[in-house]
């Protein structure tokens, strides 16, 4: 690995100040460190955010769940409060990577990285999340821009993510047999007033809200309503693990599983 300067700032301001076009913020490092090792990314400065106390923790207040950016997947998975408020989100965290990855990887890191097959982005979209940074608040829908691309600007740090508590929700994923990332993942969330969000991950350059599925389930929250939705394989990812056609079909299969489990 190429050498760099390591920093461990104590607050967000200091962290932001240290950043430049040649720096990277480090949270869990689950993607950053391997890509640095493989020479896919090199940085002059690595700025570790884990020393910033206020970035970690889970808070449930009424219809809002707020999770600090450096909260590890294992903490999200275990949180009793969260299990009560949004059990599907805790279950999603329990399904990320393996126990060691969950002990290190963070929600903020996952969202900032925006891997097309990551789990959390679908939760953010389905649960009308607001991503709070040191400068502003961004709606999930506009936050995820494309493959590994978000609306975060240079020096901008995610501080926390706020999720809206749904009345019912469930996340189902078809894992890639090798990496265990999502080949496709479907997050179904139903809110008061019967509005339903269906967010998909793994299928395109990044997670997205599937309008057709959301509309159909908002009208009639049943597996049969999914049958009538046409999901085209156009624009859907295709790789050695799954063709676009298979993925498109699995979106429906897994959407049904999610609805059944709601």
């Amino acid at each position: 690995m190429k050498t760099f300067d390591y920093h461990s700032p104590k607050d967000v301001k200091e962290a932001s100040k240290l950043s430049s076009s040649k720096s990277v913020f480090l949270a869990g490092g689950m993607t950053t460190i391997p890509s640095m090792k493989l020479g896919l990314a090199t940085y002059k400065d690595v700025i570790n955010l884990k020393g910033i106390k206020k970035l970690s923790g889970i808070k449930v207040s009424g219809k809002i769940v707020k999770i600090g950016a450096t909260t590890q997947h294992a903490e999200v998975a275990k949180s009793k409060e969260l299990k009560k408020a949004i059990p599907s989100l805790a279950a999603l965290a329990e399904g990320i990577g393996d126990p060691q990855v969950r002990n290190r990887g963070t929600i903020g890191g996952s969202i900032a990285n925006n891997d097309p097959a990551a789990d959390y982005p679908s939760a953010c979209i389905a649960l009308n999340a607001v991503i709070h940074t040191n400068n502003r608040s961004i709606n999930a829908e506009t936050f995820f821009k494309g493959m590994y691309e978000t609306s975060l600007k240079s020096g901008e740090i995610i501080e926390s993510i706020e999720f809206e508590v749904p009345s019912k929700s469930n996340y189902q994923k078809l894992p890639n047999p090798a990496s265990r990332y999502a080949v496709i993942g479907v997050y179904v969330a139903r809110f008061k007033g019967d509005n339903v969000n269906v967010a998909i991950t793994g299928a395109k350059s990044c997670a997205y809200l599937d309008k057709n599925l959301s509309d159909a389930l908002s009208k009639d929250f049943s597996t049969s309503s999914i049958n009538n939705v046409n999901i085209s394989s156009k624009g859907i990812n295709s790789d050695i693990h799954a063709s676009a056609n298979y993925r498109a079909n699995m979106i429906k299969v897994y959407a049904k599983k999610a609805v059944e489990a709601c």
């Binding site: 480090l26 490092g29 689950m30 570790n48 060691q100 290190r104």
Partner: peptide, 15 residues
């Protein structure tokens, strides 16, 4: 007390 993969953590971060 928690298991992690030591290849994917900076020693500086374990201080």
């Amino acid at each position: 007390g928690k298991s992690i993969k030591s290849c994917t953590a900076f020693a500086a971060d374990i201080d």
